[in-house]
Write a protein that binds this DNA or RNA. Structure first.
Lengths: 341, 341
DNA sequence: TAATGAAATGCAACCGCTCTCAGGTTGTGC
DNA sequence: GCACAACCTGAGAGCGGTTGCATTTCATTA
């Protein structure tokens, strides 16, 4: 059961291999009769073009790469990536692209990976899930002619295509919600570990300013997106008697809750918490965490869409899209109007 | 900056393109002098072979596919897949393979995907994360000559290569732990939704038998791996007064805890819980969940290793490996000897 | 010294598809 | 009836590697 080639199909249909190729690729100038005859034979035989040969001849692989440069442990701690992968994968399915996944393990590996990907001609384009820090690959990438789109957690950059969630406004919304609910001493557990963290801090501060709240430095603590760091940060915050905390991630929100309950206080009765991310466990812990949800899958889908436009259409002006976030009200903010189990 | 070819390198080194190819591929019969000269030029120019051309000529792509046939929502609910992807990706990095990811969205899509993958010659081999049910693709796969390895959650099958975690023994161990801790009426929230679920139920029962405990059908409830289903299941269980529950997944363990606390009882004081999977939130909820951890990343790595052996070496006898699990003792079993924050 | 063979290298035929170019056919307008 | 255009189709030259076979080189051995 040797694999069929264009030549074989052509022979069966009494046409040349070029004609079969045209049918396969939906070229316009084919007579309906021939088209149908060839299509029927393709159907019957289950012929499929050899992708390597096609790629060699046409210089197009229909493979797009998803590169995740972050250190390893993030991946399986943070549901963000799982969702992103899913969104991108589904978008690839929908547009008949093949998705290749590249997890960067460390700096040297990053260099090696980018070198390979930019040199071996495998990919038509790349989606890069950067974090806005440590983006040392950018210059090389820009110098190449590889189409790429950055997704999420990235700094605003000139002339680069990217898709991100609106971290600033999400944080703003979280803080605003705490203000509306009536809290007066609203603390922040922030982080400048990545760009998203910085933006979330920014949103927090903007909300305070807009609502004429004092921005007390004693109510600002710093973590690194881990639960443990937030536990410590919360302990530092406690003496300053906040009545609410905006934690820049759910993981940190959980750490804050632990510190609060550990100090004999209660959430939200004594101190309210709002997180960010809406990780699955946000609804599992007690009290359930009020949080900000990012449209991660939409981001992935949009990134693919944008990338395909770049690849085919020669999009000229940079596509820079920031998607809105959503406030998910649960128990930890003390304003629940709707509780799921 | 046109991309270099073997021909170009050959010209620069004063040798033929065939010789350069041999250097690149480490063929033995090359004089050291030529080898070095060519290598130096490759180094200087950063030449990289075109993968499509190589694949076309050699019929080998060094791309392996990871196929995840489960329905969509599992993926981002269940950290299992994120970890599996990570394990496989790292193993691919280590062995210079490119990983392509295929998420199946529904039955028809499954058929379409397998047809494509078996027909277009893109992949050297596939890793398939099946669940032991709905494996309708298997006959077609076996009929093809595509090398493949099944990973996890799969039924024991003849003549097929697979890697799995020892669900039976893991469940046995969980149950045994509850027995050792002194509980007498140990309930099960199981599921036969997939093969792993069935095996976990089996391990539970075996433990009861081995320790001469009665196997009371009233203490066996069924869920579908969701938190909600376990909540309901636990409510049915409560009237029969279990003093401990083995839940066949952490998600279900969380649902059970909710039902217990919802009924005004406490975990583990009134009813102890052990889960399965060790999802990240298992340590985040209160009480922290005692559970069984699977070596998911090792499974991924081992699957790749096995697959590469099959691709290159013509491994003949089926490789069937079952990896051991680990009991993670936290609070919910009432036997904590060690608590993290 | 010539025959022998192993090692190193080049030649050229693929791998299967795309795409330009040119040839053939048919249709349109005058 | 003829010129010209529009449309189909086939021939064939790549795309950039790999690899069997032929050739050259050179040390070994009869």
């Amino acid at each position: 059961m040797k694999r069929l080639t264009l030549e074989d199909i052509g022979k069966m249909a009494g046409v040349s291999r070029a004609t079969v190729s045209r049918v396969v690729n939906n070229h316009p100038n084919i007579s309906p009769e021939v088209r149908h005859r060839v299509q029927r034979i393709i159907e019957e035989t289950g012929y499929q073009p050899n992708l390597a040969a096609r790629q060699l001849a046409s210089n197009r692989s229909d493979i797009i790469g998803l590169v995740i440069p972050n250190p390893v442990q993030s991946l399986f701690m943070d549901p963000y990536f799982a969702r992103l992968i899913q969104g991108v994968a589904q978008a690839c399915n929908a547009s008949d692209q093949t998705l290749s996944l590249f997890l960067i393990e460390h700096d040297e590996h990053e260099k090696h990976t980018f070198n390979r990907l930019l040199g071996n001609g495998l990919l038509d384009g790349m989606i890069i899930a950067a974090d806005g820090k440590n983006d040392s690959f950018l210059p090389q990438l820009r110098a190449s002619n590889m189409p790429f789109v950055l997704v999420g957690r990235f700094a605003n950059m000139d002339g680069i295509h990217y898709v991100d969630a609106d971290n600033i406004h999400g944080a703003y919304r979280a803080t605003e919600h705490l203000i509306h609910t009536g809290y007066r001493r609203i603390a922040l557990i922030g982080s400048s570990k990545n760009n998203a963290g910085a933006q979330r801090s920014q949103g927090y501060q903007q909300a305070l300013i807009d609502y004429d709240r004092p921005c007390d430095d004693a109510l600002i603590a710093t973590g690194d997106f881990t639960r443990h760091s937030a536990y410590t940060a919360m302990q530092q915050l406690l003496p300053h008697r906040p009545d609410a905390v905006f934690a820049a991630s759910d993981e940190m929100g959980v750490g804050a809750i632990r510190a609060i309950t550990g100090a004999g206080l209660r959430v939200p009765d004594d101190i309210a918490i709002v997180g960010f991310d809406d990780v699955p466990s946000a609804g599992a812990i007690s009290p359930q965490l009020t949080t900000i949800r990012q449209p991660i899958q939409e981001m992935g889908a949009l990134a693919i869409e944008t990338l395909l436009d770049i690849i085919s259409d020669d999009v000229t002006e940079p596509q820079q899209v920031v998607l809105d976030t959503q406030l998910i009200i649960r128990e930890s903010c003390g304003a629940a109007h709707d509780r799921d189990r």
